[in-house]
Nucleic acid binder design. Sequence first.
DNA 1: ACTATTAGTCCACAATCTGTACATAATCCT
DNA 2: AGGATTATGTACAGATTGTGGACTAATAGT
Lengths: 405, 405
Amino acid sequence: MNTSRGVRHDSMRARNLAVVLGEIRRSGPLTRAALADLTGLTKTTVSKLVSDLLEAGAVVETGVVRDGERGRPGVAVALSGHRVATLGLEINVDYLAACVVDLTRAVRVRRTRPADNRNSRPPTILRELRDLAHRAVAEAEALGLRVTGAALAVPGPVEGGLLRNAPHLGWRDVRVTGLVDLLDLPFEVDNEANLAALGELWFGSGATDFLYVSGEIGIGAGLVVDGALFRGTNGQAGELGHVVVMPDGPGCRCGGRGCLEVYAGQDALLGAVAPLSGRVAALPGAAAGMPAQAASLEGLAGLLEAGDPAARAACEEAGRALGTALTSAVHLLDPGMIVLGGSFGLLFPWLERPVGDVLSARLRQMRRTPPRLVASESGADAAVLGAAGLVIQRVIADPAGVLGL
Amino acid sequence: MNTSRGVRHDSMRARNLAVVLGEIRRSGPLTRAALADLTGLTKTTVSKLVSDLLEAGAVVETGVVRDGERGRPGVAVALSGHRVATLGLEINVDYLAACVVDLTRAVRVRRTRPADNRNSRPPTILRELRDLAHRAVAEAEALGLRVTGAALAVPGPVEGGLLRNAPHLGWRDVRVTGLVDLLDLPFEVDNEANLAALGELWFGSGATDFLYVSGEIGIGAGLVVDGALFRGTNGQAGELGHVVVMPDGPGCRCGGRGCLEVYAGQDALLGAVAPLSGRVAALPGAAAGMPAQAASLEGLAGLLEAGDPAARAACEEAGRALGTALTSAVHLLDPGMIVLGGSFGLLFPWLERPVGDVLSARLRQMRRTPPRLVASESGADAAVLGAAGLVIQRVIADPAGVLGL
DNA sequence: ACTATTAGTCCACAATCTGTACATAATCCT
DNA sequence: AGGATTATGTACAGATTGTGGACTAATAGT
């Protein structure tokens, strides 16, 4: 627990700026009078705070609100997308990505670079990422945006700026904060599953309480409770992939046996239909030249569409394993909803029934209603977007500090 | 998400009172000068705040600090146990309990009343609990204490003042907030496992990051991260008892199969040595006239001490199941430590090895070190104490509101 | 004894929010 | 159409609370 600092005049003002900006963010364009109502501050105070935010370029007046009520109409104030922006970055197994998002969470710049990172050494990739980041920032500046911070998504658990273990990259204990110096920006790093969950929060359906299940090559999850990410004690919560499904099942690369990943990881899913790969290649969805993984996953989807019994059986088994692991997750984490993302989002039509069946059979008596099961609304870029969104959140939570008010 | 209110002068002051009081709580007796350093407030402000807290009876001056440094010695200020207190209550299967705790978290009044609540109807029990509470409050007042709030621990999940489902009491959807009117105090209700976790936090070893496992008749758990309880979306997180250990194992009363409770619940543990109950009764520990459950649990412990192979095998199996469920819990919740409480605390010597073996075998590769496994420091009264402590926390977090400053 | 150093208090001052008053701009009602 | 009503947003004086430097008090070192 950190030392809790007292409130002084300047921090009172800083807090009130954040409250006003946060309320504008949360409840769309609002008049000063409405803001005064919502925040409990007086109209006078709100006026002063809003005029500071206008000057800083954080908000804009969007025009007079004529709502049919009588009385003088107010002037609506909304977040401004013209000045403040943040940078999201991602290192994944087969690509690097960068994006710039403005204060309204509109995506302004997107750059992706395919790369087979399995065969590269960390310094090389970090150099490439830095180039990508610089180009994205330059592009944003050309649009008149000021990039105020950055965050990076990596496919593995992070502890103090150190990527602890990314088995699919073959990296262990790699320091990934070197970008800070060059970009000269506030910088954060976090697990891809965590940031993808935040991507779903801010760029998805609008739900504020859910467990986002990230089905990539490994399986991770990020829990969002009341709009905030739950990280656990060491920031390693949500490792759904190694929840025990069958205590004496087949061995897993984590050293355990019968983990979820053994039954529902991408290798397991694709391996189950491997004998059919000839057929997969012949399907129209499987274009030549694409990375092997993606082609195979699309191939699997194609087989499923075509009603292939082996593919359906593989999905059925993976789905039931996922349902079993999610049962434990629901009991322990108590999520408001379950969102299947990544490859599980793609395969949702074939996973929904087996997963849902297991969940409802096992949870029916304990809970009035088991959490709803839905497919992710955000796509493959959830993690980069979540990274940029995380920094936007920091700006909104402390406009005074970040924008120098 | 609630409307976030702006900060006004009075809430600034309220916050600063809380900051000062919180710092006194956290870092023991402190001089005003030390408080100014820690909070970032000036000596002047701290002096004024402290004098208000002194007047309200929240703190006392404990005397001059002569630390050998040169310069005028300061006067240490510490929490006062003389005026402010709170009430903790508990309904469990075989007893009712009440306790009064002062601001220093010293237990001032303790009352327990054995009762076989399995065979009673809610109104009867609630009436008895109210009597117990009134007697405890009267006793506290005789000590010069002012009881400012109360909390109640119940053996089942709570949603909005409603005890949803307490299978071992046979209660469903019972409203347990009726005590408020009579006591005329702020009042809260929560799950016994959650409050026992808080009991461990405030009355146990002093750790601030752990998963408290409550082995009662059912099995629950409460996660504490950085001194705060994690409750999940509906306050139902930590239901360790129904984490899946073996997907197609024996049926559980929750409607699932192979839940942890099936393998390590009290019924399972005692049932495994049931054929030996004749021997149990003959052991010195099992005095006649005690409630059946307690006698059996002690009996089991007696058999274990005596090296009984069947009892040891039962513990071994339960321990391995617990280890399996805890593996999933560690992956999902990322606790800093695991504390075994309730009957698991009692049986710790025989559980430690099997649980620890499973945990370290399954977690070794994923984590530098698996979370440490320890027995609870607090006893059977963890939940009542946690309830009273919860209200104390409320007072410390908002002295202005509670004490009327 | 004298000096340096630290604790705690006093008082004038500064920062910020509040509350009332007022100009402004709609709708409602006759 | 015109006045009454109602709501928005700003101005100005006032209230609350924290700040900062000066001042007194109490101790250790020289």
